[in-house]
Amino acid sequence: MTDQANQALAAADAPLLVSEGLSKNYGARIGCRDVSLDIYPGEVLAVVGESGSGKSTLLGLLSTELAASAGRVSYRMRDGVLRDLASLGAAERRLLMRTDWGLIRQNPADGLRMAVSAGGNVGERLMAVGWRHYGNIRREATDWLGRVEIAADRIDDDPRSFSGGMRQRLQIARNLVTKPRLVFMDEPTGGLDVSVQARLLDLIRGLVSEMGLAVVIVTHDLAVARLLSHRMVVMRHGRVIETGLTDQVLDDPREPYTQLLVSSVLAA
């Protein structure tokens, strides 16, 4: 076996993203405190907890959108080497973010260019990595619109004319077009109707397994965590208080707080 193949094999069961002692303070207030966790290739990790428990802060730290007060985040680059993200230059980190990563925001208007056509939204990343053939960009955009169930004849419409569900699907296409390995999602089904949520969750589940994506998904909805995630972490007051396989945590929570969370869902 070649060195490269060896490395690839080793990387498959080595973590893709590693956080160690991540903390974030907002002045005197704690955003997130001492979080260490690993994310493996192809794994969906749900971050759950009440509003204000630090989920979005943690996601921001993991995706380097926020600067940590302490701790660090490392990522296994495509060459198999695990690197401290703080050691990357801004150009290298941004390249990583728009090629190997995706970031799905709760409010699609924050993750889309609302005045740019659907095709332009999907094509942006391709153009950012050097695609310079209009026909090819358009073909790829059309293909991706199809994969997120947006009719091809909407390609020149801008997202202002789209429903909330369509906008969110467009945001997903825009992020996945460069075939990232890791996608961060913050309450992706947040403001949507229940039936629209269900369809979107099915779509996400299909794409995730088809593409072998690793996902960190923040949700306050345990049903979403149940449907999508393999593993979950429960947050309270900025700390991770429980972690484990999703079914285990939901069916047999150890922490009293998690038991409360789970039972309130059952009661709902």
Partner: peptide, 22 residues
Amino acid sequence: RQLHALEEYGLMHVKLYEDIAR
């Protein structure tokens, strides 16, 4: 400013893409 500093000019082509699409 950041986009210039990092030579990230994909957006410029988005504008031209939009032109052709329209």
